[in-house]
Nucleic acid binder design. Structure first.
Lengths: 132, 132
DNA sequence: GCGACGCATCGGCAGACTTCGATCTGAGGA
DNA sequence: TCCTCAGATCGAAGTCTGCCGATGCGTCGC
C-alpha cells in the first residue's frame, strides 16, 4: 500500500507517472487494482490535470513545438488566455508529472516528461485490466 | 468571454470514446492534433470524468465485478457514499461514454463500454504523437 | 545601479463540482 | 390495488476551479 499522506500539497506528490526523480528505468509500476482508494486517488490526480481543454491544448502545443519545448510566452497567444492563467495551468501539469520546467536565463521552458503519457495509458488498464 | 457553449448539458456530447451508438467497428478516430480546441475539449471531457477518485474506483469495481457489470446497490458500500451521489457519478461516466446503463427489472446494471479505455489511451497519443 | 523583461504568486470573483437528505418514478410482489 | 424496493432527480450547502489584474522576483542589457 502506498502510505497515508493526506495533507499533501500536491507538489510533492508524483503519482503513477513518476517523473525523472528516482531512476525508474524498468517500471514495475502500480499494476494494482484501481479499486484501492490510494491508487484511484493518484490516477484521478493525473486525469484531473488533463480534464481541462486548455491544459490538453497546452500539452499538445508544447509537444508540437520546436524541440518539444516552449516558454510561457509561446503559449499565451495560442490558447488566448492571460499569462498568469497559462502559468497556473502549467503548474498543474508539472505537479501532475506530465511536464517539466527548466529555467534558462529569463525564460522558463516547459517540455513533456518523456514516458508520462505512455505510462498513463498503462494506468488506464489498471482501471479495467481486461475489457474482454 | 470564455467560449460560447456555456449552457450545454454534456448529455448530448459524446466525444472521442464514442459509445455503442453508431457502429464504430474500425475507428478512423480523431487522429487530429489535440491543439484543435474542439478535439481538446472532447478529450478533456472524458478525462474530467476520470478526474475524480470515486469515479476511477467505480469503473474499477464494475470491471472487476461478476460479469463485468454491477448495480448501484453493489457500489455504494465499497465507495462509502450515498446512493444519490453514486448515481450522480455513474451518470457522469455514462455521459463520458465510459459506461453503459441497462435497466433489468428493478435494477440498473452498469458495465464498461468495451473499447472505451483503449480508445482513450489512443487519444493520449493524439495529445503528444511521438514522445521521442 | 537601473529599467525592461519573463514569469510566478497573490487576492478576489463567478461559476462549477461534490455531497447530502428529501422526494419522485417505475417495477415487482402480496 | 397497494406497498415495497431500486434508482433517478431535486434543492441546498460547502468547496474547488478557472480566470483576471496587480504585484513580487530574478535575469538581462545599458
Amino acid at each position: 500500500m502506498r502510505g497515508k499522506m493526506e495533507g499533501m500539497t500536491a507538489t510533492s506528490m508524483l503519482p503513477v507517472v513518476a517523473p525523472e526523480t528516482e531512476a525508474a528505468c524498468c517500471p514495475p509500476l502500480v499494476r494494482e487494482a484501481a479499486t484501492d482508494p490510494e491508487v484511484a486517488r493518484d490516477l484521478a490526480h493525473v486525469f484531473k490535470a488533463l480534464g481541462d481543454p486548455t491544459r490538453v491544448q497546452l500539452l499538445s502545443i508544447i509537444a508540437a513545438h520546436d524541440g518539444g519545448e516552449a516558454c510561457v510566452c509561446d503559449l499565451t497567444d495560442p490558447v488566448g488566455l492571460s499569462q498568469p492563467t497559462v502559468s497556473h495551468h502549467l503548474k498543474i501539469l508539472v505537479d501532475a508529472g506530465l511536464l517539466t520546467r527548466e529555467q534558462r536565463g529569463r525564460w522558463a521552458y516547459y517540455s513533456l516528461v518523456p514516458g508520462a503519457l505512455t505510462r498513463l495509458a498503462d494506468g488506464l488498464s489498471d482501471v479495467a485490466p481486461a475489457p474482454r
